[in-house]
Design a protein around this nucleic acid. Structure first.
Lengths: 227, 227
DNA sequence: CGGACGAATTAGGTTAGCCTAAATCTATTA
DNA sequence: TAATAGATTTAGGCTAACCTAATTCGTCCG
């Protein structure tokens, strides 16, 4: 009659926590199963299943209200941020030390983030000089799990004007490549014409050609809020 | 009635192939289940199970004669060498680029070797300048799977004399650390007194203190054959 | 208020990789 | 040559993480 101890240290658990973290957004809102299922490429039933497990742990990773969605517990968030830290350190490392093209760092980091030791994490961090941001402009959580909120908003929101690029989502590698080709990288200054209904017209000082970006893609770009 | 396709790309399969490769030795002799079970930290029954699967693949990884042991097929050997290449490149990388202490590279590489992409393998190889040997003195298999046989023999064999260290097994981290402390590293010259029954007396030019090494540990050290 | 629809959950099944216990070989020894 | 010890395999289970199909819930609409 051994106490049933669920293995909480799996790649799969990592991925659920990360997805909940990402989908919950800065407000850490409850996330529903369907959305999670889509993000994870898994059947909704599988999500329900896993959420029940994560919520039933002795020290639960999530608060789960059936049919009302999940959010991370403190422990869950801590864990999610660890993985995010791994991911972003790895991306930075691949980019800076191993000369990966920016649009390829994500997939590699996605696989490795689950398997690097504390020691390797530390060595990479040291080698990079304790970076604060990854090559997409995302903040790298500190060892203690602290991460400053980014003062930024999605490009989707804007009308016309001039802005500085804060960060770019690493989820869509083709888009990332295209943006790079037009000089749209973190820190770049952007002249935006948002007059057209479904798309934005972007121009950078560096980028030779202007870029017509569907608003649907513009949500992948965040711009700095200057105040 | 979909053709049942066994997933042949798992960490577990990797580990079996690597173990068979390692235990088979340069002669690629048949390896028996118990030995494999011990090496892999798994019950003998589990080994039998896996061997049957590996032998039953459309393009089998092993030749398996029940109760007589296994050896790798050509495909199996190719695959094993890929993993060994990953492992040794990673060890070299951790050692040279990330300043790992030699006795810690093994465990980290052991985990990561299963998850690095071709691309990462290539980048690491390039960064290191296409190294031929890992920090333990082991030959790194080429991309095409070729690996030159090492002209060396175990230190266990020798009586007295002077020798050059060829390589040191990475399996026992404590031993590795001790050897390092006494200057016993690949390439080092070794003065050996093998007169005592159960142990060897080693002395290097670099190592300050002489080292008394049980013959059981001496099998972890290989010396060059000069001819 | 009664459907009806979509979202979520439950129920039951699969696969990989492991386990223990029981059965069966093999090889050696008396 | 028979007995037996030790190695190996077979048989039967378990868990994690997934799946599909069937069911249930909640909300919203006529």
């Amino acid at each position: 009659m051994t106490t049933r101890r669920v293995n909480t240290n799996t790649e799969s658990v990592d991925n659920y926590l990360k997805a909940i973290y990402a989908l919950g957004g800065p407000e850490e809102e409850r996330v529903n199963s369907t959305l999670l299922a889509e993000r994870l490429g898994v059947a909704p039933a599988s999500v329900t299943n896993m959420l029940q497990k994560l919520a039933a742990l002795p020290r639960p990773f999530v608060e789960y209200e059936p049919r009302r969605g999940v959010r991370l517990s403190a422990a869950g968030k801590r864990r999610a941020l660890e993985i995010v830290r791994h991911h972003r350190l790895l991306e930075t490392f691949l980019y800076q030390v191993l000369n990966y093209p920016i649009e390829e760092v994500h997939d590699e980091a996605e696989r490795l983030e689950h398997f690097i030791s504390e020691r390797l994490e530390e060595r990479i961090d040291a080698k990079l000089g304790r970076p604060k941001f990854d090559p997409h402009g995302h903040c790298i959580p500190a060892l203690n799990g602290k991460m400053s909120k980014q003062a930024s908003r999605p490009l989707t929101d804007v009308e016309d004007g001039e802005f500085a690029v804060d960060s770019i989502s690493d989820q869509d590698s083709a888009l990332l490549k295209r943006l790079k080709a037009h000089g749209v990288t973190p820190g770049a200054r952007l002249h935006v014409k948002g007059s057209a209904k479904d798309e934005l017209l972007l121009r950078t000082t560096k980028g030779s050609k202007p870029l017509r970006l569907p608003r649907s893609a513009a949500k992948s770009v965040r711009i700095r809020i200057e105040n």
